[in-house]
Computed example of a mutant assay.
Amino acid sequence: MQMDKYILGFFYEIRSPYLDSFFEGITWLGSLWLLLPLSLFVTVAMLWSGQHSLGVLDRIYLPASLLMASFLAFVLKSVFDRQRPDLFETWVILPTDSAFPSAHSAQVAAFFMALWFLLPISMRWTVGWILLFIVLVVMISRLYLQVHWPSDVLGGGLLGISCAIILRFMLLPKEAV
């Protein structure tokens, strides 16, 4: 698709040593290796703080959203079996799994959307912009690094958001909306 080529071409053209280092680091914020322990830490921290009275189902919401998004991303990867982009030279080792959907995008979107739902309603809009910024930067990192097509990243983000929303209605109390 012409738009895919244009977008990936743009990111290839703006390459610089600074941006290479920045995006290679920031992309890890979408990694299950980082987000799963972080989700467990956040859950324990909320329990210990006493500021958030969590029920049994509420306690598993954040890690469940993350794991659901990750699991579904890898199932969909095997279904779609889409090749990763090879339009431009890459300076990172391409992952060996399929491209669609981006698991990093799904995981970071699920994690931060679920975290947003766990915030007190009074904090959601101010903190929400920071969370959205983190999600978007991780998604952009996947394009900058040339490891995903734009539709992979968009599909992964939508998958992650959907998982967090579905589990929100299944696990969190109604007044937490």
Rank of each mutant, 00 (worst) to 15 (best):
Q2A: 12
Q2C: 13
M3C: 12
D4I: 02
D4A: 13
K5I: 12
K5W: 12
I7L: 14
G9C: 01
F10E: 13
F10R: 12
F11Q: 13
P17S: 13
P17V: 00
Y18S: 15
Y18F: 14
L19W: 09
D20K: 05
S21Y: 11
S21W: 11
E24Q: 11
G25C: 05
W28T: 14
L29Q: 09
G30Y: 02
S31I: 05
S31M: 08
S31N: 07
L32G: 10
W33R: 15
L35F: 01
P37V: 09
L40K: 03
F41I: 12
F41G: 08
T43L: 04
V44F: 09
V44P: 00
M46L: 15
M46K: 13
L47D: 11
S49K: 12
Q51L: 13
S53A: 14
L54S: 04
L54H: 01
D58L: 03
R59Q: 09
R59W: 06
A64C: 07
S65L: 00
L66I: 02
L67S: 05
A69R: 13
A69E: 05
S70C: 14
A73S: 08
A73Y: 06
V75P: 02
V79C: 05
D81A: 15
R82Y: 08
Q83T: 05
Q83K: 08
R84P: 01
P85T: 04
P85L: 06
D86P: 02
D86Y: 00
L87G: 00
F88Q: 07
E89R: 10
T90M: 11
W91Q: 12
I93L: 12
T96M: 14
D97G: 04
D97P: 03
S98N: 01
A99G: 07
P101A: 00
P101D: 02
P101R: 04
A103T: 07
S105Y: 08
S105M: 10
A106N: 02
V108M: 06
A110C: 03
F111N: 06
M113P: 05
M113N: 03
M113I: 14
A114L: 00
L115G: 08
W116V: 07
W116F: 13
F117W: 05
M123N: 15
V127Q: 07
V127E: 07
I130H: 07
L131T: 00
L131C: 08
F133D: 08
L136H: 10
L136A: 11
L136C: 10
V137Q: 13
V137L: 14
V138T: 10
M139D: 03
M139N: 07
I140A: 15
I140E: 14
S141Q: 05
S141I: 06
R142N: 03
L143M: 11
Y144H: 03
Y144D: 11
L145T: 04
V147C: 00
H148W: 09
P150C: 00
D152T: 07
L154G: 07
G156D: 01
G157F: 00
L158I: 00
L158H: 02
L159V: 07
G160M: 06
G160N: 00
G160E: 08
I161H: 05
I166H: 06
L167G: 10
L167A: 05
L167Y: 00
R168E: 11
F169Y: 07
F169R: 14
M170E: 11
M170G: 04
L171A: 03
L172Y: 01
L172I: 04
L172K: 06
L172Q: 13
K174L: 09
K174C: 12
K174G: 08
E175W: 06
A176Y: 11
A176Q: 15
V177K: 15
